[in-house]
Design a protein around this nucleic acid. Structure first.
Lengths: 338, 338
DNA sequence: ATGGTCTGATAGAACGTTATATCAAAGAGT
DNA sequence: ACTCTTTGATATAACGTTCTATCAGACCAT
């Protein structure tokens, strides 16, 4: 079967040169004649040599691996953001690996610690709900370059996020302009800063229209939960004619719920989402939503982290990306009652 | 701000003991008196010592990190499988990080190499389309314990997969029993072993019923592609009354396409999916599908890898999990024509 | 010839940890 | 009093790489 794991030493022996020579060839540094370079490369490929980055990083103190710590990677929006970030990082020779906290801050602690121990060059991080000060201290004491996204957590850490309040205000204005007066906010469970901002935008738009009938209807941001929630909401408040949703998943679930109840989204009840995931345009009826470009967000995220790695002492930055109203089929004027 | 990063040496100096003593205290091994143990721990906490796992793993050759290399982590089914596997691995003290090949075998090569470089204890792997023999050699040379899943690639590597032929045969039998005679197979693009097996099952069921009208209609396994594909399929072959799909995503897309064309899935055209992702039961109409328990698959996967890590010389195993027909609303008897 | 620069390679130490072997001192058994 | 074992600690060498310094030889100018 296979022999021993190939090392610089075994490649050196096979090529008849010294260990440092092989090292220089592999990294393209130093002065090496074309002749020996060829011989070394040939030997290395034949032996399936793979550089041991643990040893290399230990010696050099540098790392080309970055860690992504996220609350839910299976969420389509998150997945696309990650894709964008990973793409950018790959062009710069970095490799990104992903851990999923599932919004459990104990698991999150273990994962961050593991990344620090493994000497990651930097971290992209969506802080879990209930993240404690101690976690921030951990990152700070080890000086790991970190960028949070979506959920800001501390002013001393770089952040890339969304103009949440602006977006929900736009969404609510759209519904108000269509003539809706009973508009609920659907989705989210705990009061994260993101949800707080989104609700603030929703409230401010209502206030501008002289309405104070804010109605918050919590729900996990998943399709099944959205489906169940809209049904209960309709039962208890039949006069609600429109909902602003905390995310596309809950919005799509709500649409399904309405259909099951014999109602047509966009005619009987208007629904507006947040994110513009792929499903939003494919599902029937197509979802009106506040679109964010996840690729754009992801690239900005990667770029910010690279800048931070290069200039560790720069003051923390904060970038906010606007969401854009995309009108499709789930919003329309309310039916005349009576 | 803070001084140098603390090492075993600095802790040892602070506690007035030798380096190996500190190492033993930190790991709880060896014979250490309670008195010195206290002194060492005190010094370590005061200096905020954190073990450098790169150095530790390099010396000991052991690792508690698992790598997952998958073709598309954002796919809901894959995401749930991963969740199951990660859960199991975490109970055993392992940490799993994920890379996404996007079915690009060049990227896959880089990623596998990176995991090998980083000295992962083991790999869970969905081989990308077009994976070359050279890639297998790479893994073999380095002896990294590996378990493939979903897509088998080599008999010498542990594999956990599905009884694909059995499942599509069951699905096709279901449609035949309902009275369908023109049944197409929708989805998949390249002839992976998975798709080959699924098509074989579909064909064998048709053959048993004395039919030889197999119709293959390729499509990427995404919702938008499924939507577009069913429309073209209906246009060119209006007599097709049922489709067996390569996956739930393409099946759900097909349902959306039928609805847009004014047809009702389950009445006008029957659709049957594969996987039973969360959306399958939530969408309207609810999708009939061949259900696989992703959690079960994930746990089996994790268990298999742990076994392999513990017993590297066991012969390769192959586990196959059956899919179960879940009948919902997208399958029914064909309408009487004329 | 002499000294100076350039080229291509190597020797040896170092990174922070753990494995192996050793060792002094103290207790235990005959 | 002598070996034998146990206890608690240490010295030394490794893991695989990269960094720093050095070196032999070729080339060149004077």
């Amino acid at each position: 079967m296979g022999g021993e794991k190939p090392t610089l030493a075994s490649v050196a022996k096979a090529a008849g040169v010294s260990v440092p020579t092989v090292s220089q060839v592999m990294r393209g540094t130093g002065r090496i004649s074309e002749q020996t370079r060829q011989r070394v490369i040939e030997a290395a490929t034949k032996l399936h040599y793979v550089r041991n980055s643990r040893a290399a990083e230990m010696r050099s103190g540098e790392s080309r691996e970055i860690g992504i710590v996220i609350n839910q990677f299976a969420n389509p929006f998150n997945a696309e953001v990650i894709s964008g970030a990973v793409d950018l990082l790959e062009t710069e020779g970095y490799l990104a690996s992903i851990l999923d906290t599932r919004d459990d801050h104990v698991r999150q602690w273990r994962q961050l610690e593991a990344f620090i121990r493994a000497g990651r060059a930097g971290l992209l991080w969506v802080p879990a709900q209930g993240t404690e000060q101690e976690t921030l201290d951990l990152l700070r004491t080890h000086g790991t370059p970190t960028v949070t996204f979506l959920r800001p957590v501390d002013n001393s850490i770089d952040h890339v996020g969304l103009r949440n309040a602006e977006a929900t205000a736009t969404a609510t204005h759209h519904l108000l302009a269509l003539g809706h007066r009973n508009i609920a906010y659907l989705g989210g469970t705990t009061m994260t800063s993101v949800r707080r901002d989104r609700i603030a935008g929703y409230r401010s738009a209502l206030a501008e229209a002289g309405l104070d009938r804010a109605m918050l209807w919590p729900s996990p941001d998943t399709k099944p939960a959205g489906l169940a929630s809209i049904l209960r909401l309709r039962q208890e408040h039949p006069n609600v004619t429109a909902v602003v949703c905390n995310g596309d998943m809950v919005a799509l679930g709500a649409c399904q719920g309405l259909i099951r109840a014999g109602l047509q989204p966009g005619r009987d009840v208007s629904v507006i989402g947040f994110d513009d995931i792929e499903d939003a345009s494919v599902s029937t009826p197509a979802l009106t939503t506040m679109a964010v470009s996840p690729q754009k967000l992801g690239r900005k995220l990667g770029r910010t982290l690279l800048d931070r790695i290069q200039e560790p002492d720069m003051p923390a930055t904060r970038t906010e990306i606007s969401a854009e109203l995309v009108i499709r089929d789930t919003t329309g004027s309310p039916l005349q009652r009576r």
